[in-house]
Design a protein around this nucleic acid. Sequence first.
DNA 1: TATGAATGAGAGTTCATTCAT
DNA 2: AATGAATGAACTCTCATTCAT
Lengths: 233, 233, 233, 233
Amino acid sequence: MEPKASAEPRRLRADAARNRQRLIDAAEEVFAERGLDATLDDIAKHAGVNVATAYRHFDNKHELARAFLQHQLDRANALAREAAEAADPWTGLTQFLEQAVRLMTSSRGFVDALSNAYGAEWFSEQMHDLLTGPIRLLVTRAQEAGAVRADLDATDFALILPMLASVSERGLVAGLPEPFCRYLSVVLAGLRPDGTPLPGRAPSDAELRADMAAKADKHARARARGQAVPEKC
Amino acid sequence: MEPKASAEPRRLRADAARNRQRLIDAAEEVFAERGLDATLDDIAKHAGVNVATAYRHFDNKHELARAFLQHQLDRANALAREAAEAADPWTGLTQFLEQAVRLMTSSRGFVDALSNAYGAEWFSEQMHDLLTGPIRLLVTRAQEAGAVRADLDATDFALILPMLASVSERGLVAGLPEPFCRYLSVVLAGLRPDGTPLPGRAPSDAELRADMAAKADKHARARARGQAVPEKC
Amino acid sequence: MEPKASAEPRRLRADAARNRQRLIDAAEEVFAERGLDATLDDIAKHAGVNVATAYRHFDNKHELARAFLQHQLDRANALAREAAEAADPWTGLTQFLEQAVRLMTSSRGFVDALSNAYGAEWFSEQMHDLLTGPIRLLVTRAQEAGAVRADLDATDFALILPMLASVSERGLVAGLPEPFCRYLSVVLAGLRPDGTPLPGRAPSDAELRADMAAKADKHARARARGQAVPEKC
Amino acid sequence: MEPKASAEPRRLRADAARNRQRLIDAAEEVFAERGLDATLDDIAKHAGVNVATAYRHFDNKHELARAFLQHQLDRANALAREAAEAADPWTGLTQFLEQAVRLMTSSRGFVDALSNAYGAEWFSEQMHDLLTGPIRLLVTRAQEAGAVRADLDATDFALILPMLASVSERGLVAGLPEPFCRYLSVVLAGLRPDGTPLPGRAPSDAELRADMAAKADKHARARARGQAVPEKC
DNA sequence: TATGAATGAGAGTTCATTCAT
DNA sequence: AATGAATGAACTCTCATTCAT
């Protein structure tokens, strides 16, 4: 109802804007550190404001998380678009992945969302847009240049990105110089054409959408888990 | 006081032993389906016993989770050992990874732990043992046969395994035939020698150990997160 | 400090006066629809002003409710006075009751107050004045004309009015043509002389006063509730 | 799911039964004194147990209220059935009303529910059963004996009872000997045949049912309130 | 030993009221 | 004078854990 978390926020009073920003920053920090399970109280405390103030700015915890994730998604979109301008398509793709992983590295909350701890329909929709928009561009260009497997699809990154996210999540801790780069390299090497096709197939756009619905519906998820796993790849 | 979940369990009365097993089985099911956030009450109900009974057998939720994870780790160990007996080293490695991923696919709780939602020192230690034991065997054999990159180390799988776990976690939902196989293939392809070295280096055994400590200590983790991320891989 | 809602209001700036009126109007609407539990924020929004503005005009929610109730009481007074001018005393009484009930029908907040959801001393005092003033007039005239029971007193309406209020509250919902009229008729019929005296007695003016104090003091009320209820009327 | 507030409760452990009873008693007291808005915390404190204990016994506040109201309804049913055995039909009816009012006198919460502060579908259904069952019996018998107006219906008591409830609510406070008896007498006198028909009509059973739905749906209620009120009875 | 029951410490959210612009 | 914003205290409900039978 109110233009609380709207995209086009009314001009806020100076102090309110400051507090709002503090909240978002705090959310960024706290969600990044503790994941999306962090409590609103904690975030508010971190921001130096009362919880109720958080509720003035965001309808509920969900919305704050959304604001936070929106921010991350915006960055990811920007990265993809920048990368699309690279002279060499392969360089563009690797550059994007590298930076996307770097982005994820800095935020456990984002990884949570990607890993679906946060099964919001909304987030998946955003991801879908990212995949079928800028990322598809990157992939197609790279394929035309023969730089990546022909049977790869942009939608494959719906799985590959979270996969890389999880490395990044663990990566820094080890104290290695640039840990995730190493595994990103493995994956990148695996994306290059090698004469053999990948087994299975990429999720279709429709399946990606179905996936969203399923994720939003916990029961579907439980059911899915019960499914038999094939014996052999 | 009592060495409840000790390595050297007293002989339990028949019914006590049965209840203990039921609890572990229930934990298996429930943790697998709902992840490590599942309620102890739920697990107890699933096991057909009272929560308090769970507390007679396990000091706390943590310990029950440990028992559950132990089980998964044991299976993983078994898988690795079996795989080590494959005639062809590469086949052995792929077989192990395939089955390990399959194992993870069936257990959200295990993935939670791997993805570090569950940062117990203990778990990491177990992983360490798995890596430097049976897995190292597999890797070394494959390297000697020239089937995988020479600069790969068993400890790399401390990152690669969770990475694959996360695909498996998402995989089933999509309704694809055998989704994780596809991305496992990508990673496997990436592990093959291609003439270029991997950037960075594998975590040393010591670093792996340090990692554990860090993960158990949230503050260290927070600090780590603050670290600068290098601009370029 | 300032005599905010005082009887002798300072001259207000034009816009202030307008806002005050808007607030009262909004209170009227909102309290009427949602009862006295409605949010001050809601009322302010309805009035198109900020909550804080409400607090400039009224010390607290209580006071705004008072202003609202005052308005209703004023109307009730006017109704009683008008009715006193009816040619036939009985007609006057019925006319008053009919319109009073109609008034209550349109305002859940008023009914709340009458039904004592709002046990303010002040309100009871107002009711007292209404009863011992214009209503007594109506009753006495009707009695002199032999139209109502001789042993009825104006103060009896301290109970009868809320009683009718509660029908009106429920009445409209049922979708009946003019529901409360039916039960008003029952009560009116019951007020006519029938040769037998009413049991008990009407509250004296003093008791009515005591009643106020008691209602304002919750503890007294609790005590009262503990009182034994006689076995037989 | 659990047989928490079930009609046929499992045998409870002695202490649990005691606590459950304490909770119900406390609810009775607190709801009676402060109405259904009372907080669960208060009730629990009154019962000398932790809030969570209340949640062990009742799914939520709603259910506790329901248990409390059920109790009142049961009593009301019993009263009606007893009254049906009176030799004289009129005596039976008056006896029932007298005792019903007495019952309501002791419980603000019950009155709240009757007055619809508590718009639960369930409660209305219970009332419906009470009205069309034992109360209809009383009314019909009285009509056959010519003791009450022929155009009265049992469903009229859906409005008359709450009406009387509201007197009783206010009655005791005044310190009068048996205050509500006086107004009950007025209403009873009004129910006797007097040669003139009542205006309007009683709600049909269907309308009573519709009423429930409407009450459960706040919006319907708001709409209803907006309805025009006829000028003349 | 196993159980039903009880509990304290939150978590998310709302609201009357006050502060700062 | 009026507003946008902030706050503390409450309220409903949950969960890991402990007590008493």
